[in-house]
Write a protein that binds this DNA or RNA. Sequence first.
DNA 1: TATTGTTATACTCTATAACTATA
DNA 2: TATAGTTATAGAGTATAACAATA
Lengths: 172, 172
Amino acid sequence: MRGNKDPDCSKPKARSGGAAFLLAQVGAHAAAKFGERLAELKLIPAHAGIVRVLAATPGITQQALASALQTQPSRLVALVDELESKGLLERRPHDSDRRSYSLHLTDAGHSTLQAIGRIARDHQQTLLAGLSEEQQRQLTALLQRVADQQGLIPRVHPGYRTIERPERSEKP
Amino acid sequence: MRGNKDPDCSKPKARSGGAAFLLAQVGAHAAAKFGERLAELKLIPAHAGIVRVLAATPGITQQALASALQTQPSRLVALVDELESKGLLERRPHDSDRRSYSLHLTDAGHSTLQAIGRIARDHQQTLLAGLSEEQQRQLTALLQRVADQQGLIPRVHPGYRTIERPERSEKP
DNA sequence: TATTGTTATACTCTATAACTATA
DNA sequence: TATAGTTATAGAGTATAACAATA
């Protein structure tokens, strides 16, 4: 265990929980703050994710959307319903398969997309206000490197995928 | 907005969602992976947080613990119950106030604390495997800077504090 | 028979507010 | 009256499996 002879620096990494904890902590903070800002648009982060995917791949089906976002199709129903009732997207009949829909952003949907972009940039600026531009570039590059190496899919938030909870202690 | 004359680099930050998104994404990934590893000990991250606070401040009451972790006292009951039934902590009578308990780690609790530390280090090493030691130091410093500037409390994970969800669309 | 979107069900987690026993 | 710990209740979110329409 770290053959250091100077006892004063024998635990150089146990500062504030380590980089991994900092990542989780700052990341949760970033997600929470973004969610707060998004509330201005009466949306939640999951809505924003859908809008972004739809902008990138118009006409996508709900199955494909679920696959792209790594979530269950049944989970999308309510979210797509909400976006549709807000007039931000349309469910159009699919050309060749009458079981499925083609999802398309409306004009209002595209406006919302832009608003989301503005909020995201504003959010990021506030979040990284303590860093110089050069430091922000460094941070981005380092995070991108970790994300790539860890096999994270660009633009897809894990959304807290099912975490195996150990047996909740015996409860008779 | 960024007075760039070269159109090709007019959007230098819209790469993979920006640093803020990367932070949320990598942070959620880090938290999820840590949770998976912690399952080896039949614990969840919230348990680990309690154990760490107890190690730092032995004899703390549940109210003070709730305050330290920024959570509701009622939320701690089940968690403390579980740790007690595992023999990792004890509820001892408080010296001067018979309403409250003094929480103390047992020997097994201290062993578990060490196991948590090992898991955390192992986890961090895996998470940052794509970075050199110098890059890891850089990343840690940058994250620490953001955490400080954002007013995050050292060692306290936001745990996803209540996010204001906008009115769930009308549902008659 | 398989697949798309949807609905139904059960289960977990949480916040809130009671409750008790002390202070 | 106020506080510590606990319990009860209700609500949101999710995974899973069923379902009807279509392939």
